[in-house]
Simulated assay, not measured.
Amino acid sequence: MEDAERKGRVEGQLEGKLEAIPRLLKLGLTLEQVAEALQLDIAEVRKSARSQTEQ
């Protein structure tokens, strides 16, 4: 049960970070700054930014 709870917590944290990406970019941060601030890989930030602009 603990593994499922931990996995859910990690997924929730990641989801929150991914939701923050468009807001941070709108504030003028670069992709690199967003990746550093959210402790994400730059490729993940680029992928999320692209999917947001396609919507």
Results as ranks from 00 to 15, higher is better:
residue 2 E to K: 11
residue 2 E to G: 14
residue 2 E to I: 11
residue 3 D to T: 14
residue 3 D to A: 14
residue 3 D to H: 07
residue 3 D to M: 08
residue 4 A to F: 08
residue 5 E to R: 09
residue 6 R to E: 07
residue 6 R to K: 05
residue 6 R to S: 05
residue 7 K to C: 09
residue 7 K to G: 04
residue 7 K to F: 13
residue 8 G to H: 10
residue 9 R to L: 13
residue 10 V to S: 02
residue 11 E to L: 10
residue 12 G to Q: 05
residue 12 G to V: 07
residue 12 G to P: 00
residue 13 Q to F: 10
residue 13 Q to N: 07
residue 14 L to M: 15
residue 14 L to G: 03
residue 16 G to S: 10
residue 17 K to G: 05
residue 17 K to R: 09
residue 18 L to W: 04
residue 19 E to Q: 04
residue 19 E to Y: 05
residue 20 A to W: 10
residue 20 A to E: 14
residue 20 A to D: 09
residue 21 I to E: 15
residue 21 I to N: 13
residue 21 I to C: 11
residue 21 I to A: 10
residue 22 P to I: 14
residue 22 P to D: 14
residue 22 P to M: 10
residue 23 R to W: 14
residue 23 R to D: 15
residue 23 R to C: 12
residue 24 L to H: 09
residue 24 L to I: 07
residue 25 L to A: 08
residue 25 L to E: 15
residue 25 L to G: 13
residue 26 K to Y: 02
residue 26 K to L: 00
residue 26 K to S: 00
residue 26 K to N: 01
residue 27 L to S: 05
residue 28 G to L: 05
residue 28 G to I: 11
residue 28 G to P: 04
residue 29 L to W: 04
residue 29 L to M: 01
residue 29 L to G: 03
residue 30 T to P: 07
residue 30 T to M: 01
residue 31 L to Y: 12
residue 31 L to S: 08
residue 32 E to A: 03
residue 32 E to C: 01
residue 32 E to S: 06
residue 33 Q to W: 01
residue 34 V to W: 07
residue 35 A to R: 01
residue 35 A to E: 00
residue 38 L to M: 05
residue 38 L to Q: 07
residue 38 L to T: 07
residue 38 L to D: 09
residue 38 L to G: 15
residue 38 L to C: 12
residue 39 Q to Y: 00
residue 39 Q to M: 02
residue 39 Q to D: 03
residue 40 L to Q: 02
residue 40 L to H: 01
residue 41 D to M: 06
residue 42 I to L: 07
residue 43 A to I: 13
residue 44 E to T: 13
residue 44 E to F: 11
residue 45 V to C: 13
residue 45 V to Q: 05
residue 46 R to F: 12
residue 47 K to D: 04
residue 48 S to H: 07
residue 48 S to T: 12
residue 49 A to G: 04
residue 49 A to V: 00
residue 49 A to W: 01
residue 50 R to K: 04
residue 51 S to R: 12
residue 53 T to L: 03
residue 53 T to R: 11
residue 53 T to S: 13
residue 53 T to I: 05
residue 55 Q to N: 12
residue 55 Q to K: 14
residue 55 Q to D: 12
